[in-house]
């Protein structure tokens, strides 16, 4: 074995063992907040694992959505739970039930391991076809080709689901608060660390968010990763009290939330008329259409993720 690959094997082994240890600690930790921090750590380590596997697109998404956004949402949930129910209350299952669940999980894991180990080499898949047909889309990143051309229907549904999730969240609002502003009222902070962060970071963050969306056509990046960064910058201005989350009844907000999925749907139906099928792109129009849809998606995803973090409307309901 080469010395280089030996070092890689050592690194990967440490990474996998650490991943397993952190995954176990998520389950073992009895405090919700500590478990959430372990979950975020797990997501970041998993992102490194995806880089090691050569899937930089997945790594970016895992770091942004899996560790970042999900982490923030879970921290908010944990702090709400702390006020109501203690974790692992008396109704936790008995020992026979735990053994049964453990055995079931172990069996499924063993079956998955066996399936992965018995994959033929090269593994069957559409990877070669995806790369071979990429020139017809005008894109340079095969992952974006899969997400926006070959399997555009999946991405369309994901974008719609995000809007539905936000609607579900909003509908938790008590009667009389519907249409109000989500989140607590915060006094603007001018001098402190948040004031400094909000003065310096958003211009850089917005540039990086747009860059990551734009570069997604040819290199790792895309609407979800870029949108997450843009959403984070918006949240930062709320935290520092410079802006407040908009009323959920705001028509401008609702327009921004649906523009991505709506444009995607319109382009999809236009495919029936101008190309062969739903979500098919006319010859030579693939790349501009994809970039346009991704741009609108980025804006919608940024707004939806930020509003999810803000939570359901809780104050200043409109008359």
């Amino acid at each position: 074995m080469m010395p280089g690959s030996m070092a890689e094997l050592l690194f990967d082994s440490i990474l996998v063992l650490t991943l397993l240890a952190v995954a176990l600690s998520i389950l073992a930790l009895r405090q919700a907040f500590a478990a959430v921090l372990a979950f975020v750590t797990y997501g970041l380590l998993l992102a490194i694992a995806w880089v090691r596997l050569g899937s930089v697109d997945v790594a970016l998404t895992e770091a942004a959505i899996g560790a970042g956004v999900t982490g923030v949402l879970l921290i908010a949930a944990a702090s709400r739970l702390r006020r109501s129910i203690p974790i692992a209350d008396k109704a936790s299952p008995g020992i026979p039930m735990r053994i049964a669940v453990g055995a079931l999980c172990a069996t499924i894991s063993a079956a998955l391991v066996a399936a992965v180990l018995h994959l033929p080499t090269p593994a069957p898949g559409q990877a070669l076809a995806a790369v071979a047909n990429l020139p017809s889309t005008g894109l340079g990143n095969p992952v974006t080709g899969v997400l926006l051309a070959y399997r555009a229907i999946d991405t369309l549904l994901e974008a719609v689901v995000l809007v539905l999730v936000l609607l579900g969240d909003w509908s938790m609002a008590p009667d009389g608060q519907w249409g109000g502003r989500p989140g607590p009222r915060l006094a603007p902070e001018v001098n402190g660390p948040l004031g400094l962060l909000v003065s310096v970071l958003p211009p850089v963050g917005i540039l990086i968010g747009i860059h990551i969306f734009w570069i997604g056509a040819d290199m790792p990046g895309g609407a979800f990763q870029g949108g997450t960064i843009l959403g984070a910058m918006w949240i930062l201005t709320w935290m520092a009290g410079r802006t407040a989350p908009p009323h959920t009844s705001s028509e401008r907000l609702r327009l921004v939330l649906v523009v991505g999925p709506a444009l995607f749907l319109v382009a999809g139906f236009a495919g029936i008329v101008f190309a062969e099928a739903f979500l098919a792109y006319p010859e030579g129009w693939a790349k501009p259409l994809i970039i346009g849809i991704e741009a609108a998606l980025t804006v919608s995803i940024a707004a939806a993720l930020a509003m999810l973090v803000a939570g359901w409307p809780s104050r200043e309901a409109p008359r």
Binding site: P193, L196, L197, L201
Partner: peptide, 16 residues
């Protein structure tokens, strides 16, 4: 630079 800036600001927030 971004990590430097971010961690300096967050550590101030935690310290506060």
């Amino acid at each position: 630079l971004l990590v430097l800036f971010g961690s300096a600001a967050t550590s101030q927030l935690i310290a506060r």
